[in-house]
Structures are given as C-alpha cells and as structure tokens.
Design a binder for these strands. Structure first.
Lengths: 332, 332
DNA sequence: GCCCGGGATGGTGACGATCACATGATGGTG
DNA sequence: CACCATCATGTGATCGTCACCATCCCGGGC
C-alpha cells in the first residue's frame, strides 16, 4: 500500500466533511443517523484506521501508560506487569514498558524520561521509590502510582500491607510452637522487603521472643541458597520466614543438602505464592500476594488521576493471606 | 507547567529559526559551530524535549516496536520480553506490549491491530503462529519476526532448534541406559512444543526404541502434576522428558507423592533452565533455552527489517545445550 | 571583476487529526 | 408570522516537527 487512508479520504467517499467523520468515530451525539451509517460504510470500505499519533498530538493524550520495572525475570515483576496489561487493555489504554538495569535514582529517572518522551499519560513505577525522593521531581507531575513504596508517604501507592504479611508469616510459625523465627529478608532497598522485616520483628517482640539477626538476600534463589547454608548449620534454627518464594526454594535446597529435613527439622514460610510454590519439595507454605490485582489497581488509580488530577488516593489495604502447605509443621 | 516548551520557544531564545533548532537536534552537519552552541544552551535553559509524537507523525516512524505475548506468567515469556526490552533500549527503540488472552487467530489479530493503532514500526510475535497463516494478512506487511514458529516456513523466525533440543534431552536419557523415554509435551498449538516432540520421537526411532504415547500438558506445573500422577503409576516408566521446567516441577512432585524417587527410580529432564531449576528437588537436569538472547535477536532482526525491508533473514540456528544436574541417573 | 559552488540559515507546507466557532436548516412557540 | 432554540454539518486554526526549496554570503578560479 502506498499510504494508509486518512480521514479526508473517508470523508470524500462518504460525501461529508472530515469533521463529520471525526464525530462519527468519536461517537458524538449530533450526527444524523443516515450520515452516520454512510460514514461507517465508508470507513469499512476504505479500511480506514484512525491515526493515534495525530490524535495524541492534538489532544495531548496518548492513551498510553508507562511502566517502569526492574530488569529481572522475577515472578512478582512479571505478574504485576500482567495485571497492568490486562487492566490497561480493558480500559482501552496501551502499555509501554521501560526496564531499568539498576535501582539507582538516576537509572529510574532515565527510564521515566524515556517514557515521558514516549508521551505517556500516566506512570506506574513497579520499582522501589525511597521515601525521601520527591516523586514530583522524578515524574514532572505526571500522574503516577508506585507499586513498591511506603504507604505512609505522600506518594500514590498501591500495595498490600507488608508489615501485616511479615506478621502473619511469623505468627503462623510461632503458633506452631517454635521459640523464635529466623528471617531471610529481601534487599533493604525495597520498601516491601523492609515492611516484611518490620512485621516479622514486631511479631517476635509482641510475643516476647528473641529477635535473631536478619540475613539478607537479593530475591534470587541463589541468595536464598547462600543464606540457607548458614541457617542449616545452626541446630537452633527451627523456623525460617523467607521474604520471597524464589529465595525460599534456595533455602530449602540448602537445608536438604545439609541433611536438615523440611518441615520435620526446620519449618519454612515463603512469600508471594508463585505458581511453583505448590510444587516445591515440600509444597511451600507461603503468604499470597495478589500481584495481578495490584497491577490492576495501579492502573485503575493512574487512570483516575489522568482523568481527574485531583483524585485522592484511598489506600485500600489488602490483607495478605497465609496459604498453608507442607513446609511448616509444629516444632518436633 | 502550562505547556511544555516547543521548538519555536527554543528558537526564540536562541535567536534562530525553528528549522535550525531541528537541525542541531538531528546532528545535521550544516550548522555553524557558534549557532550550534547557542541552540544547545537554549535547549538546556528551556528544558526543551523533542515531542516524539509530532516527530513520528511527520516522519512516519515511531521508534517503537510492538510485542505480542500470551497472557501468562510463564518464565519463558517474561525472559523473552526482557531480552526484547534490553535490546530495544540499546537501539533507542521503545517497546509497547499487547497481551492476548487466547491463541486464536482472532485474538492474536486483535492484539496486532492494537499495536498497529499504536503506530509501531515493527512487530515481534512471541506467540505461536501456525504455518498456514499468512503473516502478511495478519500484520499488513509490517516488519515482523515470530519467536515461536516453524523455521521451515516463509515467515521471519527467531528460534532455537527445538527438534535438536528434544533429541538432546532424549539422547541423554537413552545414553544413561534407559530402554525408552516418556514425554510430557506442551500444547500442540505451540510450534516449539511440537518441535521438541518430533526431536524426542526421532531420537527414539533412530535408536530403534519403542515410542510411548505422548502425554500433553499446558505448560503449567499443575498439568505436569496431572501427567506425573499417570506416569508414576506405571512401573515401567524410568525416564521422562518434560517439555518445560515448570511442568517438570509438577511431574517430580507427583512422582514423589507416589513414592517414586528421582533420579533413583525415574530420571527427569526438563526444558528451559529457568532460574529455579537448580533449586528443584533434586536439581533439575534440563536443556537451556537462551530466552534473553532470542529476544535480543528478534529485536535486531526486526530493526534490520525496519531499516531495510529487503533484508533477508539468515536463520542462525542456535543449538540448545543440555545442563546436567541431579534429576537424571543411569538406569538402576 | 565575474561567475559559480557550497555552507549556513530561514520560510513554507505538509503529516492527520481535533477543537472552537460559524452556518444553515428545522421546528416549536407566543 | 417573526423569533429563537436545537440539531446537523462545514470551515479554519492548531498541535510540534521535519522535508523541501529558497536565500544569502563567502571564497576561489579564470
């Protein structure tokens, strides 16, 4: 084809002005029924498709939202992205993604700028944004929702109650009779990870238990394995709360290598409830995170902000749910 | 801010015409050094950013590539997407994603149309496209590369040699002394899955072994578990080639539940080498797929097509590599 | 001294759509 | 029957950029 047909082509075929075509396509009320039908037919006949670029240029709206994610293949990231995709599509929006190789403010800012160059209407940051960062500076006041962030801050955040999540996991283990619970945490650059850690600590303190030192991982199963090797060598460790299922797989593997059985010798609770969690050995007790749902809600909220910048975020707190499987057992 | 600054704003500040600003920004040669500097300063001062939409409108290039993926959280999909993202960014391109809830031709066509509305310059289809489908009809002759497709077809495809992959896995098991190898395949709608199955069958036939009936899964661990329950009940099954690691987790779990040990009683080979594969119980022997690399190559090829539609695809065949871990052992 | 080539710049008109406003027809009302 | 509200449609300007062509100026060759 030499050139895609434009509105004036359609207008010519239908014998009306381009403006009328525009009205028909935008479902404007004030168009005669006969004209409308004629235009529809002409559109069909010419195979016309509205040019979104031209449209975006003049309206200032691209109907695209930008998503910044960390450049990893973690389950959580892809699940959130999936929720975002689905919700955006349902609302007739497009999704443009920018990954950032690092979590430094610079790298995130670069990703954001790339998306702004794209002309996105709103932004979902699926990366941790520290509380001391002014979101306005970062995003130049584009409607933005952060998926990993402190709910206490002024920024718009969609998140489950991570403190509660840490607490639920820990309480479950304490309830099984364990004296205390060890913790393999996520990187302290992530707000979600820190939230889980505080919940864990709070639960232990509330129960008057000893708070063991925190071990840190980087979300990868390999880092779980490293930490599992340490924990497995300490006979007093009977219960571990791991801040992600992927790390939990590593921990369990390391324990197995050291001859410590799960759950007979050590109980392990993960976090996320990834698709493979039920198929771990043993099936992993974990705290479910509604990733898709978070993505969906992030989109809904961004779109609300896009439509009306004055929208106030009502943080609906989603309570995480413990999914009990076989990696936890009463203290032997 | 009331309105982002435009080229004419910058031009006014620099005391030149908008055209000159455009030339400076496009690194056109014919601009005086002094003028160039002045314009650069003005750009800096006004915080000007070129409007990509307007640019795309007039040039007909959006510097965006569209990706169609299946709406799932499978590791493979997110890893490929990751490779695409990285490569696109490196080339200064943007990525817009559209997920399709089903693999029907209609659903895929809808996703493609959404992306075309977006004005993408090229397309990567990370979904299976049947050989009898005219890619041209689907994509209206937009530069397109398919990631899951038959290499034999006329379409532009980036893929590893799946037949070889199936063969490698099967040969490995036969080499360990197993009489034959059972197979849990992926859905027969996927070309990759079918390739693996043919490789498996060919390896068995070449070795003059009995070819057992194929069991089919849907890539999910749950489907692996279902099939594992069947296989585990048959004492004659000593070796299984599973078409994805995620299903392999399910198979292994089912075998464990039935009291069959891996690898002592049954050897299992997976496919993909997902991040969790080394942390399965036991660590999974599998065939590595270079997902990120495939994504990267898909982008490179699409961009070549965008630049020069006459580009001919040289299918560099990537040979898959067996990664031996502990889920396979010589026949006991 | 004249002419020519080419580097540096500016002006104009698309690109494809929408918006604000203008126009003409219609019909109901006092 | 004059008047105005309402609906249906057209006109012109505009969004921000780049392609194309015109213009100006300078230096060099003959």
């Amino acid at each position: 084809m030499s050139r895609a047909s434009s509105m004036s082509d359609v207008a010519r075929v239908a014998g009306v002005s381009a403006q009328t075509v525009s009205r028909v396509l935008s479902d404007h009320p004030n168009v005669g029924a006969a004209t409308r039908a004629r235009v529809r037919a002409a559109v069909e006949q010419t195979g016309y498709r509205r040019n979104r670029l031209a449209r975006a240029l003049v309206t200032g709206r691209s109907r695209t939202i930008g998503v910044v994610t960390h450049e990893t293949d973690f389950y959580s990231a892809s699940a959130i992205l999936l929720g975002i995709q689905t919700a955006a599509r349902a609302s007739g929006y497009f999704v443009s993604t920018a990954t950032t190789p690092s979590l430094s403010l610079d790298a995130i800012a670069t990703a954001v700028e790339r998306l702004m160059d794209q002309g996105v209407d709103g932004l979902v940051l699926a990366v941790p944004v520290r509380e001391d960062v002014s979101l306005g500076d970062l995003t130049h006041d584009l409607p933005t929702v952060v998926v990993d962030g402190m709910r206490s801050s002024a920024t718009e955040v969609v998140a489950v109650d991570q403190v509660e999540a840490g607490r639920v996991a820990t309480d479950h283990l304490l309830g099984l009779g364990h004296d205390t619970v060890w913790h393999v945490a996520g990187p302290d650059t992530w707000n979600d990870a820190m939230g889980r850690t505080s919940g864990w600590r709070a639960a232990l303190e509330d129960a008057g238990r000893l708070v063991p030192p925190v071990l840190y991982g980087d979300w990868t199963p390999a880092s779980g394995h490293r930490n599992g090797t340490i924990l497995g060598r300490m006979p007093e460790v009977t219960a571990v709360f791991v801040a992600s299922d992927e790390m939990a797989f590593g921990v369990i593997r390391a324990l197995a290598e050291l001859g410590r059985r799960v759950p007979e010798d050590v109980s392990v609770v993960g976090m996320d409830d990834i698709a493979l969690a039920p198929y771990a050995a043993p099936p992993l007790t974990t705290v479910r995170q509604p990733f898709r749902d978070m993505g969906r809600r992030a989109v809904e909220h961004v779109l609300a902000l896009v439509t009306d910048p004055e929208t106030v975020h009502e943080p609906e707190v989603v309570l995480p749910r413990l999914v009990e499987r076989s990696s936890t057992a009463p203290r032997g």
